[in-house]
Design a protein around this nucleic acid. Structure first.
Length: 296
DNA sequence: ATCCAGGGGTCAC
DNA sequence: GTGACCCATGGA
């Protein structure tokens, strides 16, 4: 009962693996050789799948979860969004190759896709958890969050963690989360977002229904704990908006400095000038710039 | 020891 | 609308 997904042009599983396997303590997926094993929720139900690249396809196997036709189709669609498989990267590569300082990335990172976080709740929680702290610590906090409030599923003797449901986090005790080294603000934001999602006042569908990026941005920043960085990060990672820029992002600024595209971190003109060459592909440029921090 | 982390809210001016 | 301050802790 395998699912086959054709690999689009300008897609490289090994390039995408860079992001998925960067050495951080990721608790929602892991690699076993060339195979990634990941947990997701499909219609709220936990599912564990394995995926590897084979020839011209991605081969997916469901290890846990109802393998019905509907689930398979939903998983296929989920993975397509996660790896941004439906995107034609040709225009982005044309712009990238024309850039005097960054053209090399088109060759060196060829086939790297914007790896997303299709689940809005997971995306917002991760943004809140990761705010202001270094990534190693952020992954530690995420693991504690998932281990304490999520579910765990055993497949062939291995334990797999499933991201928590908002209803559970909504009822979490502040003291318990403080024990896990969450700051009072992060706890407040997490519980509040959990409530909004659980009550249906905030959902991916509701967000997608808003006609413009500005309205989506406004809707998100109206929520406590979600500022301009998180709003744009969400548009980029969850709604696959290739025009979104996570303004103020530390990694983005460091990469722009590294490639001498800005003179300091307040150089708004330099930032604007750089992104002007990548209209419609700002999120991809950002993702490639993050990638560039890991080389040389 | 000091500064920065894949920020955001609050408050003073 | 801008800037100082706080949150909390880890890592370099």
């Amino acid at each position: 009962m395998r699912i086959l997904l054709p690999q689009p042009p300008l897609f490289s599983f090994s390039e995408c693996r860079w992001f998925l396997d960067r050495g951080y303590d990721e608790c929602l997926h892991r690699f076993e050789g060339d195979t990634i094993v990941k947990t997701v929720r499909i219609d709220g139900a936990p599912l564990v799948f394995a995926m590897r690249s084979q020839g011209k396809h991605l081969v997916i196997e469901i290890l846990h979860g109802a393998p019905g036709a509907k689930t398979r189709e939903q998983l296929r669609s989920w993975i397509s969004g996660w790896l941004d498989l439906g995107r034609n990267l040709q225009p982005f590569y044309a712009q990238l190759k024309a850039h005097p300082r960054l053209a090399w990335m088109a060759k060196d990172f060829r086939g790297l896709r914007l790896i997303g976080i299709p689940d809005l709740y997971e995306s917002l929680c991760w943004s809140i958890i990761g705010q202001q702290i270094n990534l190693a610590f952020a992954y530690k906090l995420k693991r504690r969050f998932v281990e304490n409030y999520g579910e765990s599923i055993r497949v062939n003797g291995t334990r797999h963690l499933i991201f928590p449901l908002p209803e559970r986090v909504m009822r979490a005790r502040v003291e318990d989360l403080q024990q896990l080294q969450f700051s009072r603000q992060k706890i407040e934001y997490l519980i509040n977002v959990s409530r909004l999602i659980h009550e249906g006042r905030l959902s991916k569908a509701r967000l997608e229904a808003l006609p413009t990026a500005e309205e989506k941005h406004q809707f998100l920043t109206g929520i406590k704990g979600i500022g301009t960085w998180t709003a744009n990060y969400t548009l980029m990672k969850t709604l696959n908006d290739t025009s979104a820029i996570p303004h103020g992002d530390a990694g983005l600024l460091n990469a722009l400095l590294k490639h001498k595209l800005i003179k300091d971190k307040k150089d708004k003109a330099g930032i604007e000038k750089t992104f002007r060459h990548f209209k419609g592909w700002e999120a991809y440029l950002t993702f490639y710039l993050w990638r560039s921090l890991a080389v040389k």
